[in-house]
Nucleic acid binder design. Sequence first.
RNA 1: GGAAGUAUAGCUCAGCUGGUUAGAGCAUUCGCUUGACGUGCGAAAGGUCCAGAGUUCGAAUCUCUUUACUUCCACCA
Length: 884
Amino acid sequence: MNKGESMAKVYEPCAVEKQIYDNWESKGYFKGVIDPEKKPFTIVIPPPNITGQLHMGHALDETLQDIIIRFKRMQGYSALWLPGTDHASIATEAKIVDALAKEGLTKEQIGREEFLKRAWDWRKKYGSRIVTQLRSLGSSCDWTRERFTMDEGLSKAVREVFVRLYNKGLIYKGERITNWCPCCNTSISDIEIEYSEDDGNFWYINYPFADGTGALTIATTRPETLLGDVAVAVNPEDEKYKDIIGKMLILPLVNKEIPVIADDYVELGFGTGAVKITPAHDPNDYEVGKRHDLPVIRIMDDKGFINENGGQYAGMERYAARKQIVEDLKAAGLLVKIEPHKHNVGHCQRCGTVLEPFVSNQWYVKMKPLAGPAIDTVRSGRIRFVPDRFAKIYYNWMENIQDWCISRQLWWGHRIPAYYCADCGHITVARETPEKCECCGSTNITQDQDTLDTWFSSALWPFSTLGWPDQTEDLKYFYPTDVLVTGYDIIFFWVARMIFSACEQMGEVPFKTVLFHGLVRDSLGRKMSKSLGNGIDPLEIIDKFGTDALRFSLITGNSPGNDQRYLQEKVESARNFANKIWNATRFVLMNFDNEPDFSKIDRAKFTTEDKWILSASNRPVNEVTENLEKFELGVALSKVYDFVWDIYCDWYIEMVKPRLFDSLSPNRLEAQYVLNKVLIKCMKLLHPFMPFVTEAIFQKLYNDAPSIMISKWPETDGSFDFPKEEEAINYIIDAIKRIRNIRHEMGVPSAKKAHIIAVTSDENKEQILRSCEPILKNMAYCAGLTVKKDKEGIAKDAASVQLENAALYMPLEELIDIAKEIERLTAEKQNLENEINRISSKLSNENFVSKAPKAVVDGERAKLEKYRSIYENTVSRLRDMNER
RNA sequence: GGAAGUAUAGCUCAGCUGGUUAGAGCAUUCGCUUGACGUGCGAAAGGUCCAGAGUUCGAAUCUCUUUACUUCCACCA
């Protein structure tokens, strides 16, 4: 039994993938090696959350990166794909809080230290789950360099950056309106808000004048905030309110006097034209308050309950308070009306809770000075976005950027390295925990309770993972990284922040190219989500169809930056492709005699089809390489697919079969050689996309080769350039297709062979036809071939096909349906006529001939000649048949 | 309110910097136990490339307008 016969009839990915992966890893093929002889090529992974479960988005993201890094590795770069995970402060903290709740505990009860201990335990237990899952995708990451955002080294980088920015005045602490999640119990940054159109109401409320001269009506969507009102504002241009500016109002329920002020923030004609001003709970009101020097009264606590400033409402939950306040206003006769009103409400991206904007003391990064250089990196082309339309989105955000709120009232994360002195009030910001206040020397100092936004540490990822702030060898060699692959959904969260962080800290871009991909949606085009329950687990798909099939289905037909739908049929067709190449290999090996000695081949014995495929195989090599360089991965993959399936399997293998089946065939070894040669080339081109099956096949084709993943990427082989043979085989393929077509249309059974009479006066075509007689016999139901110069004596009812400068006749014993054949030929004639007219009118257009590139004009001329020749044959045949 | 994307075969989508008789996969129809594969082979049907205008010798491709859907940003109490 030879190697081919020992192969299973159906490729079974599950049986081999794990073993192949382990072998790669144990041999150290994933390792990025500092090699001065080689050029580095670096990718850092977008670190998945430790709370995360592998989803289709990861699968796509990792597959893209793996394709690029494998391609570069094979091209001879010293490739490093650096993996790691993110501590995901809010998400992880929520998990721990949930677990505590199950025990009936709160985090306050167990205290910070114990809480962090539990968080680290949790991370130890579950944090590696996602990493294991990444491996099953075939990701060729250098696991020896795996990083975690809360590793010591990365934490050091975080403190370093914080201190530097603070010392430059780019980090400050201040009291401002911040969006607060009462559920997660922390401030969040602007981009963590998700707005949605919610149904709400406009409550129209009368604020009586203090002098008893009636009332002013205001409208609000949040009546409970009136507890914190300090004024009512009107537009100074508003005629109807001109006289009341400066008058005092009685704040309902609170019974406190507040002034009517004039501010052009109030839009004329909207609502009642009078706006209640609650500086502590609305960003715009806050600004108005500042302008008018109004007090800021917070009436709600961190959990969304009314605080002591809310008088009789203190202690009530915000919505309960709203209800009660509306009731009380109604009872007091101050509620004018309630109008349903749809408005945009901010929700917490993490938990969906309606956010409460209020004043608090938070840490911010001053963004304006950082944004400029960051914008410039993209504008100047030092960083390229693929597709480039994302640059516009990036500019737009960067140019209108607000300061970044970086403090979070959470425990799981990097604690802010700021220390407050109880004696003098000075804030000491330091890399290492200070012993005393740098101002007064007091040892009575305490560290800030807050932690940093998770994205603060991920913003440093491209260089912190390579050892920065230390000048490590890794940093010197692998930085800046080459490509960043990520979804467009985190362009602000992550990409933008990495860019300005790198500009500021490294004075250099973090990466040269950003490849954006879209979302993987469900088959109906909806976002995959837990709440919809429409998520597809990549691991289940891998189990069923294999990693290669999943990867293939995610890449094929996809272009950068565009969303795609997940369709199981796509995975199935990808699995079929894996099986196809497996069986092609099986076929090749079944037709080897033990170990053929390819050193004995005689190139002179190469047949036309051998030269054709060798020459033609240069095309996918060039094109796939080019497409990969341009990040057109989907296009690249479909080119390999087409070549392997349509050209190699369906044509070359079929052409070569007779030589293989005849053990006495004089050029059997050459056929085996070419089969092997082209197959290996294809497998290499395919390897970045489908690493497992190509490795499995590679191992079958070679006995002692280490691995396809460290083999050399194919290059154009100049010694295999046979345009003549390519032309010949293309001619023959065309002929065979036409023969099959007509036979099928005439209903000729495939068992029925026909002797083919070729009529041509073209020596070149004659030569081609003669030399390809075996192919015709094999693939065109041909019993034998006669080539003649004229069509004398050919049966009128023979089936015929018209080619360029030749016609083929197949006399069959059964009469073909003459009427039908005439109809077919007439249609074909018409078709050709249309084409000929189209092209000749084009060529008779002087503008075209003079302005179009020469190659295009020549191409059209050649086409015209070809169609004319076929047309003449068709007309002549039609005449013969009509004469009958 | 601002910006972007998409619109191509029944379905899902390719089609790069304008030149192809407009492609693929799936589905459909017809025919094949051909000694790798029925997860296969062969043949076919199916498209005024959303609509309209423009630029050009030439437009699915570039420009403008319209329509439909999607997304992002901002946000008025």
